[in-house]
């Protein structure tokens, strides 16, 4: 039976590899935050796409006379239902309108006493051409002060901006990965000097370069597993604290994480990738440095 392998490289006299878990924890923390933010933005965009990309909102300013306002709403609904390529028309209830305004205007009781605008949600067909100007003209013939929000225009520019933001976050993730690689390479260069005797002895008893490199990568695997786990946990904790600090009202508006598997699985994958990348970089760097020393 094979005996359990032992750590042939010691961290006891090596301040560089000792510091590695802390550095990896910091980089993982930053990468985890970036990843979670990217995921939040991506999930938020997906929801927007699914829920609101083909929607319009019609607003009728509040009137002191409820009967007049109801009559104007009915007129607008008639125009909308008759309009081609409109699939669904839904007048939002008073409680829906209050829920929409609440994040900006405060508690429900105050809002219930105020004259509220009427809101009509309209879903248009994706497949048919749609002219916003023509519809607006027809709506204004019923209510001149009607406001039409075309979500598609807003979504289009938001989507463009979000796409660029996602690209930026992805670039930052790549930059953080490159920093990690650079830091590990630098740490190993120094570490190899500290452990020169061990490397020499291993070579003299017949170890191949790959065997020596694997000893270092085994060490870095352990150190990076500790660092990456700490960093990712800290990122989750910070975001959880941030969410708690922001409070539940704001979380209706901002796309904050919900600690579901959609977030936790990518985070675990990130930790795994960091550990794997650290080990791989170590093996390559140590092999390369030994080769260069031999020349």
């Amino acid at each position: 039976m094979k005996v359990k392998p032992i750590a042939l490289i010691s961290t006891a006299d090596d301040p560089i590899t000792k510091a590695l878990p802390k550095v990896i924890a910091l980089i993982t923390f930053v990468m985890s935050l970036l990843l979670l933010m990217t995921l939040s933005a991506a999930i938020f965009l997906t929801h927007l796409n699914r829920d609101q990309a083909n929607e319009l909102t019609i607003q009728i300013p509040a009137s002191s006379e409820l009967a007049v306002q109801r009559q104007r709403v009915d007129g607008l609904v008639s125009v909308l239902t008759a309009f081609h390529s409109v699939r669904e028309v839904r007048v939002l209830s008073k409680s829906d309108v209050i829920a929409l305004l609440q994040p900006w205007l405060g508690d429900q009781e105050t809002l219930a006493d105020l004259p509220l605008p009427s809101v009509i949600a309209v879903e248009v067909s994706k497949d048919q051409p749609f002219q916003t100007d023509v519809l607006l003209q027809e709506l204004r013939s019923v209510a001149a002060d009607v406001v039409l929000d075309d979500h598609r225009q807003w979504y289009s520019s938001f989507s463009l901006f979000s796409g660029k933001l996602l690209g930026l976050l992805a670039m930052l993730l790549v930059a953080a990965s490159l920093s990690l690689i650079g830091l590990i390479a630098f740490a190993l260069k120094t570490s190899l000097v500290v452990h020169s005797k061990t490397v020499e002895v291993l070579h003299l008893v017949g170890a191949s370069d790959l065997f020596v490199a694997k000893q270092f990568s085994r060490l870095v695997w352990k150190l990076s597993a500790v660092g990456a786990t700490v960093g990712a946990t800290a990122a989750l904790l910070v975001l959880w604290l941030f969410q708690w600090w922001m409070g539940s009202e704001e979380s209706d508006v901002y796309p904050l994480l919900d600690f579901s598997l959609w977030y936790l699985i990518p985070l675990l994958v990130l930790v795994f990738l960091i550990v794997w990348l650290s080990g791989l970089v170590t093996q390559r760097v140590v092999s390369g440095l030994i080769r260069r020393q031999r020349r």
Partner: peptide, 28 residues
Amino acid sequence: FQLLDHLSVRDNVSLPLRVTGKYGDKER
């Protein structure tokens, strides 16, 4: 001597066997 200070006597002696990957209970 070129012994590795962080390894026990047994581990130092077993190094030539470990690098070949042939270190089991019998070799121990």
